[in-house]
Design a protein around this nucleic acid. Structure first.
Lengths: 188, 188
DNA sequence: CCTGTTGCAGAACAATCGTTCTGAAACATG
DNA sequence: CATGTTTCAGAACGATTGTTCTGCAACAGG
């Protein structure tokens, strides 16, 4: 009972995520968060404990979505097909204001340490998943013999980060498709 | 005449650049800038006009250094040799806290518009220089026929941004060398 | 040594930050 | 319709932000 809330937790997180992606953790001021989410200050503190809690919640939700995109990398058998499926999924999504995760990396020295650690862990995990599939591809002869699988995994991870930054400068989604097209020439 | 100043403009800019690279424009607070540069508030305002002026000066100096690194791209004849020299120069430099220019991109919606425009212009210009050399390579038969030179230029630009982000997560410079090694397989 | 000028160190400023608090509004229940 | 509970809207809080100001220190020239 009591007065019904005028917001949905998911909806609030969606809008907060959007603002955080545009302005960053420090750059997104509480007043803007209140304006954008429609959630009043009181409820914001009751629901999320404060700005940091809201950011953490938004980030975790976002990383969850990203993890769903990389689900293809977990399939068996490990190989290039999984990597290609991963990129296809990435391409289907659009990132109008860049990627919250990548943007947040740049705030390493501004964020509470445990928040940043969340991102670093996720990045390492994704790279590991990529590596698993590249090793699998190596064994199955999908990659040229003598390929540096580890270096390739790092390369792909770095490229993903780069594409997310490039998306801010050139928001046209077609660019991303073109860039990923070039990646094909590496995967063999 | 008058009391001699205890600072050098270049030294101040160097230290300010370092702090801005770590914390970003909004994240680098004036008190920290004062502490790090050793420049007192009064002189900071007299010399640079304020935080925004200091950032703009630091950024322009930094972009100048980056431009020096990409000088190889301006040489004739345009071709892959120039691109390789560019990457060698990039690799020789080290970026302990990532790249100020790339880090600043994520602050697009926080920065004064004309400051952000500086970065965007620089990125576009570098990509154009890359494209010139890729087209040259195409004509001279250094690239496989039918290669998407424009896409390749976008790819390389995005990759550079990515490597600078990756350098924050994995500060080991050896990683960058490894990643650039993979790029070789694209340049042919 | 005095005087004029410039830079230094820190106090003081309004504005804004994230956070907390207060009183009224909007329901479910008896 | 009263009562209890939960949320809402906005005022109020101390702390910190970028900026400006004030008094003193350190030189060059006469």
């Amino acid at each position: 009972m009591g007065r019904p809330r005028t917001y949905t937790r998911d909806e609030v997180l969606r809008k907060a995520t959007d603002l955080f992606a545009r302005k960053g953790y420090e750059g997104a001021h509480l007043q803007e968060l209140v304006d954008v989410t429609g959630l009043n200050r009181f409820s914001l503190y009751k629901e999320f404990g404060g700005k940091e809690g809201l950011f953490q919640a938004a980030l975790e939700g976002y990383l969850g979505q990203l993890a769903a995109l990389s689900a293809a990398l977990q399939r068996d058998p490990a190989g290039l097909a999984n990597v290609r499926a991963f990129y296809a999924a990435l391409l289907a999504e659009d990132f109008p204001h860049g990627c919250l995760a990548v943007n947040t990396i740049r705030e390493k020295h501004v964020l509470p340490a445990h928040v940043y650690a969340t991102i670093e862990r996720f990045a390492a995990e994704t790279e590991r998943s990529l590596l698993r599939n590249l090793r699998g591809a190596e064994q199955r002869g999908e990659l040229a013999p003598g390929t540096d699988a580890e270096g390739l995994a790092q390369f792909l991870t770095a490229l993903n980060m780069g594409v997310m930054s490039y998306a801010i400068v050139a928001p046209d989604p077609a660019c991303r498709a073109r860039i990923y097209g070039v990646v094909e020439s590496v995967l063999r």
